[in-house]
Design a protein around this nucleic acid. Sequence first.
RNA 1: GGGCGUUUAGCUCAGCAGGUUAGAGCACUGCCCUUACAAGGCAGCGGUCGAGGGUUCGAGUCCCUCAGCGCCCACCA
Length: 859
Amino acid sequence: MPSTSIPEKQAIPEKQVPEKPGLEGLEQKWGDRWEADGTYRFDRSKSRAEIYSIDTPPPTVSGSLHVGHVFSYTHTDTVARFHRMRGREVFYPMGWDDNGLPTERRVQNFFGVRCDPALPYDPGFTPPAKPPSPPVAVSRPNFVELCIRLTLDDEKTFEDLWRRLGLSVDWDMTYTTIGPEAQRASQRGFLHLLAGGHAYQAVAPTLWDVDFQTAIAQAELEDRELTGAYHRIGFGGPDGTPIEIDTTRPELLPACVALVAHPDDERFKPLFGSEATTPLFGVRVPILAHRLAEPDKGTGIAMICTFGDVTDVIWWRELKLPVRSIVGPDGRIQAEPPEGVSPGPMWHEVTGKKMEPARARTVELLRESGDLIGEPRPVKHAVKFFEKGNKPLEILTSRQWFVRTLNHQSRLLERGKTLRWHPPYMRGRFESWVNGLNSDWLISRQRFFGVPFPLWYRLGDDGSVLYDQALLPDESRLPVDPSTDVPDGFTAEGRDRPGGFTGEPDVMDTWATSSLTPQIAGRWADDPDLFSRVFPMDVRPQAHEIIRTWLFSTVVRSDLEHDSLPWADAAISGWVLDPDRKKMSKSKGNALTPIGLLDQHGADAVRYWAASGRPGVDTAFDEGQMKVGRRLAIKVLNASKFVLSRLSDRPATADEDEGGVTTPLDQAMLVGLAALIEEATNAFEGYDYARALERTESFFWGFCDDYLELVKGRAYGNQGDEGAASANRALTLALSSLLRLFAPFLPFVTEEVWSWWQDGTVHRAAWPVPSELRGPAGPDADPLVLEVAAVVLGEVRKAKTIAKASMRAEVSRAVVRDTAPRLAALATGAGDVCDAGRIAELVTEEADIFSVEVVLASA
RNA sequence: GGGCGUUUAGCUCAGCAGGUUAGAGCACUGCCCUUACAAGGCAGCGGUCGAGGGUUCGAGUCCCUCAGCGCCCACCA
């Protein structure tokens, strides 16, 4: 039997510089370590002033993360890391947006189920092993359970990717937009809106997606260019003369309620007040005047249908016209004709048809009846679609929930002005959206996987729904599902019985929930203490395309609920563009999965590319930049190795903190670095992480190429102990600052190097300040010393290159001509210049124009 | 139709308050195993800064006009 050896206590590794430093394994090593040490754990005992809180965008989990996500989430992470190092306690939760249509669709296909809100909850339900056809009907709670089950896997995958990328999220604070806390917050928020008169129910024309069979909000619209056709149709005029109108939607003829022309249009003035007769259906409709009718569009007179487009809605409302609707929720011409239309043969020709066939048939009929004038003329025109949909939207009349926005547009604009936008011009998008609002915010959806509206209605003795008698739950009951829960004062038997109650069947739109992400993440409904410490938050990072949805709706909710902005800053990120300058789509991005990029280039390298994309600017996808990032990370390792191995060579008695920086060249480098710290700090405070990175990187390369080369010999002791001590002291000071400056961008490699010689994590180390370098540099430090030395060294290198000589080649004599002050600066660094350039004799001559004459020893 | 952004080397981009011969990286060319680094280093080639006007001693940088590209918004029969 093999002896069981007691595992030896894990030896704490000596702080040391590896012989051959590399990037391999750093992500696993430090990822595990950060998790074990709780490096990014949020300390909720801190006060609001000490906390920096981030309203993280919850990615939609019914898909996969793509490079665009990696891009923008990296931006936020660099900012989070900066503020953490500045001493703020960073509240950086991660949310998953699992609520909504995309998840519903996946669940339906994956499990072979469909949701029927009328069914009771079945606690023992298990989905069939194979998706059956037709799908199994399940209750809403059962359906929601399946949605949650399916999204859990995605959420794990997403978390793994984020950890791999090095996001400094506190993974104990994740939330989901369908979880109980989110439901509680959503329902509580809704009840408050209702109590405050900000939410209301109305039967009104709304945009309707016939595939999803749900109402759609203005913010979810998308214009798409389609080829349609103008059809010229003759209406019967009052005096028998036909009135010609142009329409792209002749199938809506039976829904026609009026004709309309501009009030000043002389051609039609005589007709206003009289009636015309629709072709085929023979319905008499009034001829009216309205300013929105454009004389030069079509024939100058249009037919108003209920409803062909949003202009029809305006005409219908302002001209107080009747509704003559013909389209059902499924997108087909309904069975019964509307009032005023005969259920005769013409109606039978179109009823039950979808729009396209109905249009085709109507055109045939018009042609047969002689009411089609000329042939249809093809036209390209913009048609409104649900952004996630495939069919043109219809406008249907239905009962929906709205949140008032139109009555406080100006206050919302003020909020937008107070919010600090990064970059500032993004405010314009918010303002044009608010100015363009044409209806209140429609928040109800005729779907299932969303937060239910927390209310029921009384039923009349005849079984009719008494919409004005809503039954609301006490807040302590939240979250409730009215499809299974019972209102106070009723029993389950009363459901859907005359005299009883019925549950509100609709759910809230996904934006109605995610408009509360600050409240959800801050646990507003569950943990008021926490909420008071994080809200209003510091920053909302997000992409520009959802300013009109997510950003806008969050501002609305915070305004109504808290009378404040939800955050002080909005950091807007751009898109990732593929090489064709198009937005990188998921289909194209699939060839380049984020995990694949991380495998190939490493997290620090991918982050480097992402962080080089400036705030708000669309950025080209560029693997070349990742290679550059990787090279930078390797350079950090090697340069650090040089600096620190010098450190360990020295006798143990050498105390780093005691030594002074006495050499002017070292002092010059330190004051240059102090200036960099100032610049990088300012850039970060203005959310310009890209500038901070660019400046730091640029300094770092100069540091390696020039300063390191110049002081190398002296650091080894070529010029005596004091010079060596000064160089080594300056090198370690510089390395410490540079690592901290790079830490937000390259968290893995900087942490690795930090661990070679420092205690604790670099990510909780203090962000560098200029004084820590200006102090040791002393009051007489002159940056010119390094500048001139570097230029002279460059000229010497150039001479060697031209002579095809090695950089080690000896220079017997070098003559530097320059102005007196610059020569004076050079004189103080001459020892290092000669050392680095292997110059035997350095001669200076005063001159107006800089030049260096180099004589190689062997030449 | 209104608005915003953008247009700088072959490619990707800096150039923040106007100031000496316009910068970086990639790519390309040449040289160099130099004791931190050859998955490296050093150096070089390459641009009349979208077009045209204007302000200024001086403009890539400010103003006007125009064009290309992209985006946002709009009551597109």
